[in-house]
Design a protein around this nucleic acid. Structure first.
Length: 587
DNA sequence: GCCGTTTTCGGCCCGACTGTTTTCAGTCG
């Protein structure tokens, strides 16, 4: 069982223990263990073999034993036992919003309910409402939540969330009562998908702001409406919370609700080590904590009057940590040592290498793409149309490819466009790892992007060997590995691949790994870029544009590149045209 | 079950909101 699968088991054990009413801190330990496994940047097998798994934060002696057992035998007695005594339907019930472990347990024990179907019946015939602590409203809410369950639990692409969030934020900021406002949460951390939106507004007058949201024409349903906090759902299924805080607490609330949870835990621990207590309300001396309890949170005065998050970080002797990095993956330690990377920015981008034209499945001609690149002020534009095996995308035969190379060279010579055009190909990595063109064809190009487009569901060993063979394939031209896993966020699972092995091979062979900027892809995943960068792998943020507007998607890739700790110098397409041509051996 | 600059026991974030309650439990973030 690999690290990811074991993390899922630990997560499920946590839920099963919740349903049993176990010690909540024990439950959290399993959940923390699962997260620690997911964000492991070393091979689990190596950690186990070298007996270093226990050094990972959040994994203690008991979890080392359990994880090792699962890794070696795919089996764990505790897990089997818990599953045997808990009906599977109870786990599904936990997915119903507003229905947590205590209530699930209650309906199971009192009514013998073991599935969502039985729960529906119990809601309809009045048995649920008759339980102590529940009532008719609970039953009605539950029925609605069951009906809408799939939609409620859906996540949304960051770009889709942005299309709703950014105009709303503008409107919110324009309200007379609002002094400052931001979208916090995973949206602000630039996660690839977003579950809901967290708006924070600074104001001494919350009532009209609450009214603005619950009355908003795009709101489909109001799920909570309090004095300082309301929750709504939009017609797309996206949910939003809006919290209004006093202006002097805004920065603390913004930081708190930006998270992530792991980041906040680490920040609070750091504050405690300095005799301070950090919360969404402010930063308070620990020894005054009791006195502060007597005051309403909103009335408490923080030890610092933070105007910006930089002030907050400074108070804890830290460099400012950009929201993208706040995932509890070592950013605080890096900030303490002054070793946070200077992250790549929009303005650093000077071109891109993976774009299509009408020659394969693009909708714009070579000239139209060149004109758009000029308009964007790019110094170079790489064309990489599909190779012949991608027949569904009108992949090019060698003759057509070489004709395109000729056309590109002529266009460069003509001086019609400022941008320097580069002749590449998105060449298929065939099922056995061979490339879709003979070497003598590939060697006439400026570079190639190698991508998997068929047989994406191969088992990990086969897929890995296939990708590694392509990486090691000797050629005279530079190679970029395209969309490594082929995932489509929320639609298609990533191919099973050993990221670490691929990264190490790419480092050895000098192969650049692509960060495909298509908002559905964002592949390779941001979680692996820090490791890749440390191992010396370079990144190409590629829009994979199929029309002229597609070139602008490069900023979607840049967003997650920052999340992956990437510095400009790591990203090949921030280099000047002279440096790129020298790197390609074309100067 | 994890953790340790209060260190091997005793903490582990806590406030807003809802729906049921008559002072609070459960859920969520």
């Amino acid at each position: 069982m690999d690290a990811r699968a074991i993390a899922e088991v630990l997560e499920e054990i946590g839920q099963l223990l919740e349903l049993k009413g176990e010690n909540p801190f024990k439950i959290r330990a399993y959940q923390n263990g699962a997260r620690a496994l997911e964000s492991l940047d070393e091979d689990l097998g190596t950690l186990i073999a070298e007996e270093r798994l226990g050094e990972v934060k959040g994994i203690g002696k008991a979890l080392v034993d359990k994880i090792t057992k699962l890794y070696q035998t795919d089996q764990l007695d505790l897990y089997d036992q818990l599953r045997a005594e808990t009906p599977q339907g109870l786990l599904l019930m936990l997915e119903i919003p507003g229905f947590g472990p205590k209530k699930v347990r209650k309906v199971h024990e009192a009514l013998g309910v073991t599935s969502i179907e039985e729960l529906t019946v119990a809601c309809e015939d009045g048995r649920l409402a008759a339980l102590p602590g529940m009532g008719e409203k609970t039953a009605q809410k539950l029925l609605k939540a069951i009906e809408m369950r799939e939609q409620y639990n859906q996540r949304h692409l960051w770009v889709d969330a942005a299309a709703l969030a950014l105009p709303l934020l503008e409107q919110l900021r324009a309200l007379p009562a609002v002094q400052r406002a931001e979208v916090a949460g995973s949206f602000r951390r630039k996660m690839e998908t977003v579950g809901d939106l967290d708006f924070i507004a600074a104001s001494d007058e919350p009532a009209p702001i609450m009214e603005w949201l619950v009355q908003h024409p795009e709101v489909a349903e109001v799920t909570a409406h309090g004095e300082t906090k309301s929750s709504v759902r939009f017609s797309t299924g996206l949910q939003a919370d809006l919290r209004v805080v006093p202006p002097h607490q805004f920065v603390f609330a913004l930081h708190h609700f930006t998270g992530s949870k792991d980041h906040n835990v680490a920040m609070r621990q750091r504050a405690l080590a300095q005799g301070l207590s950090l919360s969404e309300w402010g930063l308070f001396p620990t020894d005054e904590a009791e006195k502060a309890q007597e005051l309403a949170p909103r009335a408490r005065k923080s030890v610092i009057a933070a105007q910006s998050e930089a002030d907050l970080f400074e108070a804890l002797k830290l460099a400012h940590i950009p929201p993208e990095l706040r995932e509890g993956r070592g950013e605080i330690e890096a900030a303490e040592r002054g070793e946070l990377p200077r992250l790549v920015q929009d303005a650093d981008l000077r071109g891109a290498f993976h774009n299509h034209t009408t020659a394969s499945d693009g909708r714009a001609t070579l000239e139209e793409m060149a004109a758009k690149a000029d308009a964007l002020g790019w110094e170079y534009l790489g064309l990489a149309d599909h190779s012949k095996s991608s027949w569904q995308a009108h992949g090019l035969e060698p003759e057509r490819l070489l004709a395109q190379v000729e056309a590109i060279r002529e266009l460069n010579a003509s001086g019609r466009f400022k941008v320097r055009l580069l002749a590449g190909s998105e060449v298929d990595i065939l099922t056995d790892g061979a490339l879709d063109f003979p070497d003598e064809v590939l060697n006439q190009l400026d570079y190639i992007v190698m991508s998997v487009h068929q047989a994406m569901t191969q088992d990990e060993a086969t897929y890995n060997a296939r990708v590694l063979r392509a990486i090691r394939h000797p050629l005279q031209v530079r190679k970029i590995l395209g969309h490594m896993t082929g995932r489509l966020l929320l639609r298609r699972e990533p191919s099973r691949v050993d990221h670490l092995k691929v990264i190490e091979a790419a480092a050895e062979e000098g192969v650049v790994i692509e960060l495909n900027a298509n908002p559905w892809r964002l592949d390779m995943d941001w979680r692996w870029w820090r490791t890749a960068q440390e191992k010396g792998v370079r990144c190409a943020i590629n829009p994979d544009a199929h029309n002229t507007e597609g070139l602008e998607h490069v900023v979607d890739g840049l967003r997650v590149a920052r999340k992956g700790w990437l510095r400009a110098e790591t990203v090949v397409n921030t280099w000047s045209v002279a440096d790129v041509l020298a790197w390609l051996g074309r100067s």
